[in-house]
């Protein structure tokens, strides 16, 4: 069982404007408190930008550069190099970006930073869509999901960003869930101990975007993990795969059924998704050598 064991402190304040029950705010709190005060944040337009605060308020204690949607990794590179030039190489530079800003418009800058192995920590809050603009698809949106720009369901699969990043042979990639906060905190700590480009992808069930109940974000994240839809694992140096949890205990059906974005799925659609998830799970176990 997961023990709740993570630092909680002064790095994130209540009173922010995330939707009540949003697991992104919860994750942000754990991540920022794990990193501590010696850090500078880079935040592109996203729910995080809104949660971090509208002028003159801020819910985060670290300084933040609110940057553009496509350039978080490039901005972080600039901050890191500047800190190096000023003799402060130990300050963490952390990107806090959405999936749109990471899988889509920001991928070029991220790929370039990864290729240079810039010493940055890049956290992607993956709520599988452009939620800040009202919930359109991103390339992280899963097959069949209904969004504002895929009213009949998305026709293509979710992009596998971990594999893309692994191909860059960066030192550390991990997936996290707000239902596994101790693990999230441990992975952030581990990333912090490594020099180079580290990317952590956190699954964030979006209440309005996915159509789940206000109190169901954490439960939904847990189901994503338990069904193998969003496995928790690490990839070191692009080749060393470790499963954080290497068992699954439920089919995808229940996970899909409680989300409005999947409500239109037929039994056949669901078995197709199950087959896809099974394939992905076996692939991962195989890479991890079980």
């Amino acid at each position: 069982m997961d023990m709740i064991d993570y630092p909680d402190g002064e790095q994130f304040s209540p009173g922010h404007v995330a939707c009540a029950g949003c697991a992104e705010a919860l994750s942000l709190r754990v991540i920022l408190n794990t990193i501590g005060p010696d850090a500078i944040g880079v935040v592109p337009p996203s729910c995080t930008a809104v949660i971090c605060g509208g002028y003159p308020l801020s819910s985060v204690s670290i300084p933040v550069q609110h940057t553009t949607l496509e350039n978080a990794a490039a901005s972080a590179s600039g901050i890191k190099r500047s800190l190096n030039a000023m003799g402060k190489p130990d300050t963490t530079v952390v990107c806090l970006a959405g999936d749109g800003g990471t899988y889509d418009i920001g991928l070029q800058a991220l790929s370039s930073a990864a290729e240079r192995n810039e010493d940055i920590l890049y956290v992607c809050f993956d709520n599988e869509g452009y939620m800040n603009t009202g919930g359109q698809k991103s390339s992280s949106t899963p097959l069949n999901a209904i969004t504002g720009s895929t009213p009949a369901g998305k026709l293509s699969r979710k992009k596998n960003l971990v594999e893309i990043l692994a191909a860059h042979r960066i030192p550390y990639i991990a997936t996290c869930s707000p239902a596994h906060l101790s693990d999230m905190s441990a992975k952030i700590k581990k990333a912090e101990s490594i020099r180079g480009t580290k990317v952590i992808i956190v699954i964030i069930p979006c209440l309005p975007g996915w159509g789940v109940a206000d109190d169901a974000a954490v439960k939904t994240a847990r189901m994503a993990v338990d069904s193998g839809v969003f496995p928790l694992y690490e990839v070191e140096d692009g080749v060393d795969y470790t499963m954080t949890i290497n068992t699954r205990n439920q089919a995808v059906n229940a996970y899909l059924k409680q989300q409005k974005r999947f409500r239109h799925l037929s039994d056949a659609d669901i078995s197709d998704i199950q087959a896809d998830v099974d394939w992905g799970w076996e692939y991962l176990l195989d890479r991890a050598g079980k």
């Binding site: 418009i105 452009y130 800040n132 603009t133 009202g134 359109q136 504002g148 720009s149 895929t150 009213p151």
Partner: peptide, 16 residues
């Protein structure tokens, strides 16, 4: 089409 506030309703109506 790519979404951005306050253009997005144009995109969403067209996809609809």
């Amino acid at each position: 089409l790519y979404p951005i506030t306050p253009q997005t309703p144009i995109l969403e109506k067209l996809t609809e």
